[in-house]
Amino acid sequence: MIAPLLSVEGLTKRFGALLVSDSVTFAVEERELHALIGPNGAGKTTLINQLSGTLPSDAGRILFADEDISHLPLEARVRRGLARSFQITSILPDYTVLENVALAIQARSGSSFRFFGRVGQERALNDEATAVLTRVGLVGRSTARAGTLSHGEKRLLELAIALACRPRLLLLDEPFAGLGQEESQASIALLKELKSDVAIVLVEHDMDAVFSLADRVSVLVNGRIIASGTPDTIRVDPLVRNAYLGDEELA
């Protein structure tokens, strides 16, 4: 049997007396879209922060591509192919859209300790950034200052930055939050397309999106994974229905 791309074993996080992640164990295969759902306060964002290396864990192990990355900082995990987006949009507001994406490409192609060449004129960086922006449908805004984008455009830009890192696994924390109906649909279509290239862990409240996209779903309640399986099994799991999902939401 081939080892999964990401394997999480007994991951735990305490904030004082509060147990936020309670020995979380799950795995993500190559090119799988694994949705992480659960009520507010279940610890989804904390888990994403632990997986990405934004927050240190108190116990447990994270194996990524057969390597123990439990103690690596965020930036080292990104270089190994584990990129993330943030629940609260995180971009570089003073830079143009193109520069935001080009920075991510620069970070993984050649040294950033170069002091004389004009980075703005590096064709390789700009061309690849343009290609990524075309893919997410933001290429028309390349020269706009990122701070001036609409909320939906900023979410797309953040996705573009994550993609520009060329990840093997993408951790997406509520990428559809605050998007309008049309923007949501476009983003869902985009993720469907991305799924064939890259594994994704998706934290999302939008159940329509989750059940149309996910290969597998894990349900997090009070820091514990209470169920994990295909969307169809999760939909009918009595434990999940009781603990979390209102019946009508799943109808």
């Binding site: 990405s52 934004t54 900082p73 965020l74 930036e75 080292a76 990104v78 270089r79 990129a83 993330r84 943030f86 995180s90 971009i91 570089l92 920075l103 991510a104 970070a107 993984r108 950033s112 930055i161 994550a162 520009a164 890192c165």
Partner: peptide, 8 residues
């Protein structure tokens, strides 16, 4: 944080 999240 954005800089760290692109691997630097």
């Amino acid at each position: 944080m954005r800089v760290r999240a692109v691997g630097l």
